[in-house]
Amino acid sequence: MTDTNPDHTNKKSKMDFFNFLLEVFGWIRIVASPFLIGALIGLGVYVSKPDTTRLILAIIIASIGLLTGIIWATKVWRKGSTMDYTAMTSHDFDKYDKEE
């Protein structure tokens, strides 16, 4: 007997789209960290003596942070799940939840 419920396939595709959105959110979180660090360092470089040369140097530093974040987040996404990587839990404690 075949499954005639059309919602069965829609739920799976909606769940896949939802998981994709969560992965994108995790990817953005990973990219943001090195980019913000680079942007803050660049801001410090520029604010110390504001001129055109320091502005270009600050933009280069922030760009290096952004590129580092993109490379890092893409490696994490290809290796596994970005949400698992950014989760604030440790898998070492999972065994304590189970009765031995």
Rank of each mutant, 00 (worst) to 15 (best):
G44A: 02
G26R: 01
D84G: 00
V45W: 06
R54E: 03
V76I: 13
G69L: 04
F17Y: 07
V76F: 04
K95W: 08
T86G: 12
W72L: 15
V45I: 15
D3F: 09
K14E: 10
W27N: 06
I41P: 00
T82H: 05
S81A: 07
I64Q: 04
I37H: 03
P34V: 15
I64R: 01
L22R: 12
T52A: 14
A62H: 01
I37Y: 10
G65I: 01
M88C: 00
K14Q: 12
I30Q: 02
F25K: 15
A39D: 06
F25V: 12
I64L: 11
V76D: 01
M15F: 12
A58T: 02
H8S: 04
L43F: 09
R54V: 07
T89Y: 01
F17I: 09
N5F: 09
L67W: 05
T52L: 07
S63H: 10
M15L: 14
T82L: 07
T82E: 00
G38E: 04
I37D: 04
G38V: 10
W77G: 04
D92Y: 02
V31H: 00
T86K: 00
P50F: 00
N19W: 07
D92C: 01
D7T: 12
I60P: 01
T89M: 07
Y96H: 10
T53W: 11
L36T: 10
G80V: 05
S90N: 07
T2L: 14
F35R: 05
N5T: 12
L66N: 04
S90L: 03
I61A: 04
R54H: 11
I41V: 14
A87C: 00
I59W: 07
S48C: 11
I28G: 13
T86I: 10
L22S: 03
T68Q: 11
G42T: 12
S63F: 13
L55T: 13
S63L: 14
A62F: 03
F20A: 09
A87Y: 04
F18T: 11
M15G: 15
W72H: 14
L36C: 13
D94S: 02
Y96D: 05
R29G: 08
K49E: 09
P50L: 02
K11Q: 09
T9K: 15
R54P: 02
L66H: 04
I59S: 08
F18C: 07
I30T: 06
L57C: 09
I59K: 03
I56D: 06
I37T: 11
L67D: 00
I71H: 11
G44V: 05
E23L: 09
D92M: 03
V45Y: 03
T89F: 08
S33V: 14
T53E: 09
I71F: 11
F20K: 14
L22A: 12
W27L: 13
D16P: 02
S48V: 13
E23C: 05
A73S: 09
M15I: 11
T4K: 08
F35G: 01
D92E: 08
P6C: 10
K95Q: 11
V45T: 07
A73G: 03
K11F: 11
R54F: 08
F18E: 09
L66K: 05
R29E: 12
S48Y: 14
I30M: 08
W27V: 05
G65K: 01
L57V: 11
D16W: 11
I71A: 15
G69Y: 02
I56W: 07
F25S: 13
Y96R: 06
S81P: 05
I70W: 03
T4F: 07
T82K: 02
A87H: 01
L67V: 05
G65A: 05
